[in-house]
Design a protein around this nucleic acid. Structure first.
Lengths: 218, 218
DNA sequence: GTCTATACGAGGATAGAC
DNA sequence: GTCTATCCTCGTATAGAC
């Protein structure tokens, strides 16, 4: 057993090719299996068999199965924090873009994120564990929903001030824009996971953005 | 073992007081535990311990743990089908209600449904298993999303024809109305499950409905 | 329909040799 | 840091007595 008074370590899960150490291999393998079968649906044996080590070796890197999940979610949370542009650069960004292109760009980033070979797996874990795992819940409620809404509220407030969108409640606007995206992306993810056709839901997302942009025009 | 060539039996899960037979007790206990800990997080031993029977007795009622889940989802699906009013009664209903009161009524029914002591547990199972269980996925994609959208599309088409809402694409309207509700209810459920404050999200739902109704006025 | 008894592999985790 | 060996509980499921 290693130092047991240290907090869970962070890992850059982004670049899958960097999975060279045993610890990283364990993380990627666990992530992959958890995302397919759920945390409780995966055993230590299964993880180590896939990594190519014995069960006992795993405990050189993690104190428990729970710690593996903890580490995955922790690392993810840290990287997810960089998805939104910093608030203090917002004026600058908004100055040279229309609200249309800004939101369009946002959706692209969001979609890329959800389609990323590593992130999409973490999202699946978050989606399926947020009732049972407090960190998954936190990420879902705070990092995703709450932060996203606050960010958009700021955006719409600023855009309103410069006359880029019509007057209204920026909080409601943020909700009207973002909540449908959450639900549509959830549907998109399920379909994609099951290798079913996603053209319709992708069109629905596009339709939503168009409809929304039209509705906030001055 | 019982007749093994029969399909999974239906149960009226709605009325919890009717849980008198052992089979029903097993169903309710399993439902409760599955909804809290997830399907894989619950063992046959735990179910039977809570019911007050031995493991072996359970196999007199169900062939496997999987069959219990199957039975729960099956029964739920059947009852969920009665939530929406039949299409052929729609003209009649719409004749004596405004679109406002119609949607308001719909939200009430929906909310009651999601807050029902039994249904809310099934929904939690569906939410957490739809990536891994095909029936859960079907209920989520077809019975909830797809049916709901088709229903609303019909409603808006009819309402448009009688001049109750402004012209537009009824499919897009249905999506704009319903998808936010899905996402907001998901958030509401998580908060409620964790005994956290739900006033804000409830207000968000109300705001959404108001905003939407305003936007489709003629 | 329920019980006791039992089977046996899967499950998380550890001790200690190398 | 990895291995072998081991621990003991959990997990699903069955046989057969009552």
């Amino acid at each position: 057993m290693k130092d047991s008074n240290t907090a869970v370590q962070y890992f850059n899960l982004f670049d899958i090719d960097k999975a060279t150490t045993t610890k990283e291999k364990i993380l990627y393998t666990a992530l992959d299996l958890f995302s397919k079968l759920g945390y409780h649906g995966v055993s230590i044996r299964e993880i180590t068999r896939n990594v190519g080590i014995k069960e006992s070796s795993l405990y050189n890197h993690f104190r428990s199965k729970e710690e593996i999940l903890e580490c995955i979610l922790h690392s993810f949370r840290r990287e997810f924090a960089t998805v939104l542009p910093p608030i203090d650069r917002l004026d600058e960004i908004l100055a040279y873009s229309t609200i249309d292109s800004f939101l369009q760009k946002g959706i692209e980033v969001f979609k890329m994120h959800f389609e990323h070979q590593v992130y999409e797996k973490v999202w699946r874990i978050i989606y399926t564990e947020y009732f049972r795992h407090s960190l998954a819940k936190e990420i879902f409620l705070n990092d995703m929903i709450s932060n996203m809404l606050s960010f958009l509220e700021t955006v719409f407030t600023k855009a309103m001030a410069t006359g880029k969108v019509k007057e209204g409640n920026p909080r409601v606007m943020a909700a009207e824009y973002q909540y449908p995206v959450f639900a549509m992306l959830a549907e998109y993810n399920v379909l994609k996971f099951n290798n079913e056709d996603t053209t319709q839901i992708q069109q629905t997302i596009t339709d939503h953005i168009d409809y929304f942009l039209e509705s906030i025009k001055r």
